[in-house]
């Protein structure tokens, strides 16, 4: 018994010794748990979808169960269907419009806010304000969107207030319009822009800006030449964090937009769920692959022309 235990201990300590000395082994030990998880539960599913979209996975029924067979003849049928469907491009444009507006809108609001928080508040106030910004996020996304919907309802507070102030004669309905969708999206994604920008602006050395002033730069020039370039990594991170989910957003248009628009996220969801069975899966997969391609290209171009340094918090 004792000898066995000794054996195990010495084996372990030898192993530990090897690990300590072998850099490559250490790297593998640190990286493999995460990489394996991602490989199995992210990349493999992705490959499965890719195969489905090219009609390379075929389902066959054997008795009461189904077996999947890999076919090595790729087929572009589902991609052709996707591109020839009426409205596909409109749907993509609609999403681009929502996502661009949301990104620019949140950026225009976030930057002055982050600037104010970083430079005009002391440490205690900063913490308090951060707390105030985070607090609404404990309320579920759908509930928040619903609250906005009731706000914009013709019987809701905005409409009744405007009526009481005599600004409008009758009840006005903001929900059901694109404006409602855009306002709600900016509201919902604001924090994803604000936090990364605040993260970098907060680290900017105040003396640097003061130095710019003493050297005679105007506030505007300081902003453009000093503050903005220093804030760039945060702006990049924020833009990605807002643009990508906003591109796929389809719940907000349903809840506050009257369901009249048809963003790409909704299209994929519908292809997948409304056309039953493997056909729908393949159609949805093809749409998803094209969409991912677009996002990857957009991200690449963005990195290429705006910069690659990303900083989160």
């Amino acid at each position: 018994m004792a000898a066995g235990a000794d054996g195990v201990v010495s084996l372990l300590s030898r192993l530990a010794d090897r690990i300590r000395r072998d850099r490559r082994l250490k790297t593998i030990l640190f990286l493999s748990p995460g990489l394996i998880t991602l490989a199995v539960f992210f990349f493999l599913p992705f490959v499965v979808s890719l195969l489905l979209s090219f009609d390379m996975l075929v389902r066959e029924r054997v008795g009461n169960t189904f077996v999947w067979i890999l076919s090595l003849q790729p087929n572009l049928e589902y991609y052709i269907k996707f591109f020839t469907s009426p409205g596909t491009s409109v749907s993509i444009m609609q999403s681009l419009y929502y996502a661009s507006f949301t990104t620019i809108g949140t950026l225009l609001i976030s930057f002055p806010m982050a600037y104010y928080m970083a430079f005009k508040l002391d440490r205690r106030r900063k913490n308090f304000v951060l707390f105030l910004i985070f607090l609404p996020f404990w309320v579920n996304f759908i509930i928040r969107v619903y609250a906005i919907r009731f706000l914009f309802h013709p019987d809701g507070i905005v409409s009744t207030t405007l009526m009481a102030l005599g600004i409008t004669d009758g009840p006005i309905s903001i929900i059901g319009t694109d404006a409602a969708v855009l306002i709600t999206m900016v509201y919902s994604y604001l924090i994803f822009m604000l936090l990364p920008i605040y993260g970098v602006v907060e680290k900017i050395n105040k003396e640097l800006i003061e130095a710019a002033y003493t050297l005679g730069a105007t506030p505007f020039k300081t902003l453009v030449k000093v503050t903005l370039p220093l804030a760039k990594p945060g702006i990049i991170a924020g833009s990605l964090l807002v643009f990508i989910p906003a591109m796929g957003e389809f719940i907000i248009p349903i809840i506050v937009g009257g369901g009249k628009s048809y963003p790409i996220g909704r299209l994929i969801f519908d292809q997948f769920i409304k056309v039953s069975g493997i056909q729908g899966w393949a159609l949805g997969s093809a749409a998803a692959m094209v969409y991912v391609g677009l996002i990857v290209i957009a991200t690449y171009l963005y990195f290429r022309f705006v910069g690659r340094e990303v900083t989160l918090i």
Binding site: P86, G87, T88, S91, S261, V275
Partner: peptide, 18 residues
């Protein structure tokens, strides 16, 4: 049928994106 659903979905998409 799945064929009908797929065909109809194409026309529905046309309506939704109009």
């Amino acid at each position: 049928t799945p064929e009908l659903e797929e065909l109809w979905q194409r026309y529905w998409q046309q309506v939704q994106t109009a």
